[in-house]
Design a protein around this nucleic acid. Structure first.
Length: 484
RNA sequence: GGCUCCAUGGUCAAGCGGUUAAGACGUCGCCCUCUCAAGGCGAAAUCAGGGGUUCGAUUCCCCUUGGAGCUACCA
């Protein structure tokens, strides 16, 4: 039988990283078994729907490379793939369930239920619907509905016995039915709740494996009751642990945690994010390799390598992955990605940005950090004279002045302003000066960059700045040191 | 509160009765070096606690503790 999995997000905002990971595993699982990966939009809660969120989901999934075989915007044989467009389907099945005794219409209003719940909680009791409407004769109920009375349809959960399901990861999960409530299946607005829609749609769409977050773990037994009542075979379940921000908080936009799109905008590479996310809660068998393309993940993926406990999203490691991916990029590709960030602070006509990018590639953690790494080229920063003092280089302002005075004539007379020529000319005069390389080159670099660290040494920086600017900065530095 | 689930270093994690308890990020040293990176070498750091079962528990069972999820006409 063909494997069919689905990713079924609600369009309530951006695609967060936990969702992306669920989508990724769901995709990997399907592809691993040569099956189909399906996108379904669960928009039955019209109040929570955020305009534009559906498009954002399409966009994010495409950006991530998680192409779905069936979905709202790509079609498929089991559509529509947006639940509000399937609204006529659900009541039909709900009434079938009513006939089979697995559900019943209920005329209690939301206000009545809420009040009862409040009262129960005030007494410290757990609220549970008392099934009062279940005892209304069906004929009478139908008459009231025909008369226009608002109603919902509730699941009729047995009061005794157990409900259970089996999960690839979590094994057999079983609960007492009396801890379960008769949840609403069809709301007063005619739309189904998740509790019902997921069951009907997964069945109708021939979903074989349901992968979803553990927030559904404890209600899964209830869904199985529905499958049983319908006489359908339930899918195979794989519940996935949540992604946390820290030990006790979920990743959430409210705390400023970035979404997938945010990370892309910051200059994280898609492949790095996917690679990192894949390893967050899953580990490959028999290998220490940590680098995987999406295709390699498909081959390596094994649902038994999934971890059962929640994992914390470590920005540090993501950044490390990103830096690695930056380094592994073919230079031209890196250059293309880095350029927009460089030109934000550097006029393209004044600098050899290709050379700068070469120097930057192995030093790039995230693209958005580039501007602050290079802005000193455009404008000499204010800097503290204390920068000239460096213990390991054995320099201080006095040594620095000597060093700069040594370099000045050499650089002034240099006609061939290349890194090699700069290097040879300066290195040639150091031995006779009685100074060490570092004693000359550290101050020189400070003098022309004003930065403790730069994406290259003195020669590279001098080359990038160009003759005029280098000499101007050098002279200014000498003057400053003399008057200090 | 009730129900369900989870528990190896700071983080991601391997392990699936007998191991010096892998590896990676991060941290800290050292080397390389005109700075910072990169690279090389090395170090510190983990089985939450208590009971069982067993010749032997990180591994199996129970309890405690801690954490998470659910407890909606949200998903």
């Amino acid at each position: 039988m063909e494997v069919r999995t689905r990713f079924a997000p609600s369009p309530t905002g951006y695609l967060h990283l936990g969702g992306l990971r669920t989508a990724l595993y769901t995709y990997l699982f399907a592809k691993k078994y040569g099956g189909k990966f399906i996108l379904r939009i669960e928009d039955t809660d019209q109040e929570r729907e955020v305009p534009g969120a559906v498009d954002l989901i399409y966009q994010s999934l495409r950006a991530a490379g998680l192409n779905y075989d069936e979905g709202p915007d790509v079609g498929g044989d089991y559509g529509p793939y947006i639940q509000t467009q399937r609204r006529d389907i659900y009541p039909k099945y709900a009434w079938e369930l009513v006939e089979k005794g697995g559900a019943y219409p209920c005329f209690c209003t939301k206000e009545e239920i809420d009040a009862a719940r409040k009262a129960a909680e005030a007494k410290g009791e757990t609220y549970k619907y008392d099934k009062r409407c279940m005892h209304i004769p069906l004929e009478e109920a139908k008459r009231r509905i025909a008369a226009g009375e608002p109603y919902v349809i509730r699941q009729n959960v047995p009061t005794t016995g157990k409900a259970s399901f089996d999960d690839i990861l979590y094994g057999h999960v079983e609960v007492d039915c009396d801890t379960l409530d008769d949840n609403v299946l069809i709301k007063a607005d005619g739309l189904p709740t998740y509790n019902f829609a997921n069951v009907v749609d997964d069945h109708l769409m021939r979903i074989t494996h349901v992968m979803r977050g553990t927030e559904y773990l404890s209600s899964a037994p209830k869904y199985n009751l529905l499958y049983e009542a319908f006489g359908w075979t339930p899918p195979i379940y794989v519940h996935l642990p949540v992604v946390m921000k820290d030990a006790s908080r979920k990743l959430s936009k409210r705390y400023g945690d970035p979404s997938f799109e945010d990370l892309l905008a910051m200059g994280y590479l898609k492949d790095a994010i996917i690679n990192f996310i894949a390893l967050l809660g899953w580990s490959p068998k028999d290998t220490d390799n940590e680098f995987f393309t999406l295709d390699e993940l498909v081959k390596a993926f094994d649902e038994h390598g999934l971890n059962k406990s929640p994992s914390i999203f470590d920005m540090n490691k993501l950044t490390w992955f990103n830096a690695e991916y930056m380094r592994r990029l073919p230079f031209e590709e890196y250059y293309e990605k880095a350029l927009p960030w460089l030109t934000r602070v550097l006029p393209a006509d004044r600098f050899d940005l290709r050379r700068l990018a070469q120097l930057l590639q192995s030093r790039t953690e995230v693209l958005n950090r580039l501007p602050e790494m290079v802005d000193f080229l455009a404008k000499m920063p204010d800097y503290d004279l204390a920068l000239y003092t460096h213990k390991k280089m054995k320099t201080n302002p006095e040594v620095a002045l000597k060093a700069l005075q040594l370099c000045r004539p050499v650089l002034h007379s240099l006609t061939d302003w290349t890194e090699a020529a700069l290097h040879d000319a300066v290195m040639a005069v150091i031995p006779d000066s009685g100074m060490k390389n570092g004693q000359v080159l550290w101050p020189l670099r400070i003098a022309i960059t004003g930065r403790e660290s730069t994406p290259g040494g003195a020669f590279e920086m001098a080359y990038l700045l160009g003759r005029d600017e280098t000499l101007r900065r050098l002279d200014a530095a000498i003057q400053r040191l003399q008057t200090a």
